[in-house]
Amino acid sequence: MIQRFLTGFGAYLILLSKVFQKPEKGSMYRKALLKELQLHGLDSLAIVSIISLFVGAVVTIQTALNLDDPLIPDYYVAIATRESIILEFSPTMISLILAGKVGSNIASTLGTMRVSEQIEALEVMGVNAPTYLILPKILACVLFNPILITLSMFLGLFGGYFAAGFTGMVSNTDFIMGLQMAFIPYYVQYALLKTVVFAFLISSISAYFGYTVKGGAVEVGEASTKAVVASSVAIIVANYFLTDLLLS
């Protein structure tokens, strides 16, 4: 198993070395990048917004229920909600959701291109297929995921604010006060830095599984599943090390 992991990791690094090469023609890559930004960025806005809004609301309600003590000020609910959303929910949980949505899309698209000989067609033409197919996907995720996560933070906190006022557990004034109290801007930087690393892991790992598919439709499906699982595990492991490195 360890040998299989190391072989796969080596192949992943070799593929990455082929990805980061000089593009043949800038205009074609810009066009591809815009397409990927649309597919992996803009098309993820809806799911990220809905999940963030409702999870923010749920986190607020659960925190309020658990801190229901006359000795604990109400604005503590907002502080706890803010820290949960900025530190973990938005960067890590949303990245895990994107690993499912974007990762499976990347792996299945590249896998289908592989089994239908579209990648060989690019190679025969003289196109550096790993660069042309994978680099725009990595760039799109690395550039757009921080925007998605920032949006997720705002919507999560807005969901919390809305739930606090709607249920009457915390007054809007207390909630706003809690959001502003003891705010550490570095936490946002930390979250966005994690997001960039996670975006790279999602796109590159999924691309590796898709690009190296051998076989047919069944193998493409398997690659898609493996891509999501491997990206998710990589995110969780990287999250531990990044947290230790950046917050300890």
């Binding site: 043949e24 074609m28 239908s116 000989e117 067609a121 033409m125």
Partner: peptide
């Protein structure tokens, strides 16, 4: 010319033919 064409699914017919021209 590949066995099953190997046309790029995401591109139209004209875009497929234009692809090598635009690239090279």
């Amino acid at each position: 010319v590949f066995q099953f064409g190997a046309l790029f699914d995401s591109l139209t017919v004209i875009q497929n033919v234009l692809f090598p021209l635009e690239m090279f």
